[in-house]
Amino acid sequence: MDRSLLSLIIVFAPLSLFSFGGGQAVVADFQYQSVEVHGWITNEQFTDLYAVSRAAPGPSTLIAALIGWQVYGFAGAVIACLAIYIPSSIVVYGATSWWHKNEKSPWRVAIEKGLGPIAVGLVFAGILAVLRAAHIVEPGHINYLGLATFLLTGFLLYVTTITPYLLIAGVAIFYGCLQFF
């Protein structure tokens, strides 16, 4: 098991380039790399860290910093955070100048239209990866309370404009109360 700062960069920096629309697109590989390939954390720890990153205000890409912290302490958190933001930021910086110089280029439309479907596929792959890691939906096992929470939250956020943080807080309180009754 490789727990070096370099291994954090090797895992997160390439994923940065594919985090279309944010961290949700690469969550599947965050889980795959840190649990299955490198064994840095267990599925249970991944689920906990994912939950913390979703409850925190700010981009959910920051789960990388939490994983980095588990691997190599504070330095790991800083390095993972840099590795997940610097490559994508360089691309955006370069693309912005290109975008302005090529107002009429058909490639602009092609990039917008071409990246969309890949982002969709990756987001749904990420959803499946988290459902599996959290033992909500696995081959031969379904946690119905978890599945109901997942579907109900998804439905409410799809049809209303309620802020996700309110729902997440509500779910946390509900699960907390279940402990005592």
Partner: peptide
Amino acid sequence: VVLGGVAAAGVGATLA
């Protein structure tokens, strides 16, 4: 247990 619920809600937000 609480974080398991929060993860389910978080991934629900991603679903929407």
